[in-house]
Design a binder for these strands. Structure first.
Length: 548
RNA sequence: GCCCCCAUCGUCUAGCGGCCUAGGACGCUGGCCUUUCAAGCCGGUAACACGGGUUCGAAUCCCGUUGGGGGCGCCA
């Protein structure tokens, strides 16, 4: 082992001792049972839905216990950091209500971005080196991959251990020689290396057992790097200890690394921190399921939900229901306020079901007053659909009236809006700027009726048309025009004797609907007509006569 | 190749040895209501992966098989 002077010479001369950090980040003064959790995303692109999923858990647990919820940015792989990712995170976390007070810009345990904490890690790396719990490794990438090939060929576990751990027991002379030559090195943990098994308790899965770690993992990356940073394993141990985290909640892809982490905590002399490993969000692929992937699945990115304008409470409610099934059975308001319980988390991953989310979102939007819906639509449109924003602002009162149709004063409001982007296809026809009059009497939306019939119907409805507010009276105008054109006045009449008519009242109604809305689906026609006003109704019904 | 985790309707799940002829919700589907489309209401469809044990008794416990997921990086 190198002399202490030689080890210290590898580090900045003014590097603090561990005591310095221990004092700077003292144990938190919190009530008993308070949980301190942390959400630690990597800024490698847009935020992942799975991140929001875990963050909801983290934040809820901290808040319900009177603890703290920390957001820490894990950017120890500088080459993968994406410009602007942190800003995007902030927007996304704000949208879904999982932002934190304790992150960069606030909080006594900062900085909260790992690349800003390099000095802290170095203190502890030096400490490991001094204690002989770590050593310098000059192995090249080629040597490492050759070792792995060999291990696979011998059908033994891959890794840096045993006779493949070529620098573990290297002589001081060898090390000094490489150091003198300024060869790049990494710092590796000297694993206790004992064979055997470890058992530990996971808060989600209970007692787990695995082979003890004997792999000398890298704890500090290459000395070649402009800023040598630790690997995840080491940063996790140091940060979660110094930030006084009480519960490490993370994706279950980390399960296999627990034996390493446990050894690192022990070697550092830190108290172990309980783990809760959360199953990932899944995506169906054919009959198989796999982890929701940001690369392959657009719905894995939180931007997907923000861009489509899914209301945040609906998404959060859905995610909470996946976390704890109990919450999915409760009404939204109640479920958002109810605590999430760690012990109720499922152990196998859940499929993200967009159909179910749509249903939840539609139910939620149906509970909102029209004015509020429109405000949300406008907020969304300002960022994602400028044309819609302009069209709505030009006729805001009409837009509110449009939303009122079959929403206000009824027992069962329409559930036709799941997300803000739905407004345009469903209510856009109300707005002059977005409505495209139907001029072609042969348009396929009329369901194949003869163009002359379409035109005659339109003309007859128009003849003496009144903007009646009584639904039956209003519709009587359509019925009269329909009868005059040999449509059955009632669906039943048509059913009894189809040959006596050119069609039923249904087809005739559809013609009027299409002329009025451009769509084969719409809220009750007389309400639409009332909202539009008589002049506009006449304009729209008449459009199909222009060519005649 | 080695290691770990998981396994109830299409989906989310209830179930923690007898209350299970397996319950609920979403979906799908039939009907009712309705001038259309929704909404609403009523009904239907559909699962304990397989094979061995243990037990008077197993969806529940044990073993194995199969299937799925994850890990084995100077990525997190």
């Amino acid at each position: 082992m190198l002399d202490r002077d030689e080890i210290d010479a590898l580090f900045p001369p003014d590097l603090p001792e561990p005591e310095h950090w221990e004092e700077r980040y003292p144990p938190r003064d919190l009530p008993p049972g308070a949980m301190v959790t942390r959400f630690s995303p990597s800024p490698t692109g847009s935020a992942h839905l799975g991140g929001v999923y875990v963050a909801i858990l983290d934040k809820d647990l901290a808040e319900q216990s009177g603890g703290e919820y920390v957001i820490r940015i894990e950017d120890t792989d500088q080459s993968r950091s994406v410009e602007g990712a942190t800003a995007q995170f902030e927007r996304a976390f704000g949208y879904f209500g999982v932002a934190s007070e304790e992150t960069d810009g606030g909080g006594p345990y900062g900085p909260y971005t790992q690349s800003d904490r390099a000095e802290i890690y170095l203190t502890y790396v030096r400490e490991f080196l001094r204690a002989g719990d770590a050593y310098l490794c000059f192995a090249t990438r080629d040597e490492l991959s050759a070792a792995a090939d060999e291990q696979r060929a011998e059908k033994v576990p891959t890794g840096y251990y045993g006779r493949w751990a070529i620098w573990r027991d290297a002589s001081d002379e060898q090390v000094r020689e490489r150091l003198a030559a300024s060869d790049p090195y990494v710092v590796r943990f000297r694993s206790p290396g004992t064979a055997g098994r470890v058992t530990y308790t996971d808060l989600v899965r209970g007692t787990l057992e695995a082979d003890a770690n004997r792999n000398d993992v890298v704890i500090l990356k290459s000395s070649e790097l402009p800023l040598p940073l630790p690997t995840y394993h080491f940063a996790h141990v140091v940060d979660d200890h110094l930030m006084r985290i009480t519960h490490v909640i993370r994706g279950d892809e980390w399960l296999a690394s627990v034996p390493v982490h446990l050894q690192l905590f022990d070697a550092a002399g830190f108290d172990r921190i309980p783990y809760a490993h959360v199953a990932p969000l899944l995506k169906a692929e054919g009959s198989a399921k796999r982890k929701l992937s940001k690369r392959k699945d657009p719905e894995a990115s939180v931007d997907f939900y923000i861009e489509a304008g899914y209301p945040a409470p609906a998404v959060v409610y859905y995610l909470r229901g996946l976390l704890n099934a109990r919450l999915a059975e409760m009404p939204l308001d109640e479920a958002l306020a109810a605590p999430i319980r760690l012990e109720e988390l499922g152990v196998s991953g859940a499929l993200v079901d967009l159909v179910k989310l749509e249903g939840i979102a539609a139910d939620y939007v149906a509970t909102l007053p029209s004015r509020l819906v429109l405000d949300e639509v406008l907020d969304w449109a300002d960022a994602h659909d400028a044309e819609l924003a302009e069209a709505v602002r030009a006729q805001e009162d009409l837009a509110v009236r449009a939303l009122d149709v079959e929403r206000v004063g009824v027992d069962n409001p329409r559930k036709d809006l799941a997300k803000w982007s739905d407004f345009r296809p469903i209510y856009g026809f109300f707005l002059d700027a977005l409505f495209e009059p139907v001029r072609d009497p042969a348009d396929e939306r009329f369901g194949g009726l003869a163009p002359e019939v379409v035109q005659r119907l339109s003309r007859d409805v128009l003849d003496g048309y009144q903007d009646l507010t009584d639904g039956d009276a209003w519709f009587q105008q359509v019925r009269t025009a329909a009868e005059r054109n040999r449509f059955a006045a009632r669906a039943k009449d048509y059913k009894q004797d189809p040959d006596a008519y050119v069609g039923s009242i249904r087809e005739a109604s559809q013609v009027v609907r299409v002329l009025l809305t451009g769509s084969t689906r719409s809220p009750a026609m007389h309400l639409v007509a009332n909202a539009l006003g008589e002049d506009e109704v006449r304009r729209r019904l008449g459009a199909v006569l222009d060519g005649a």
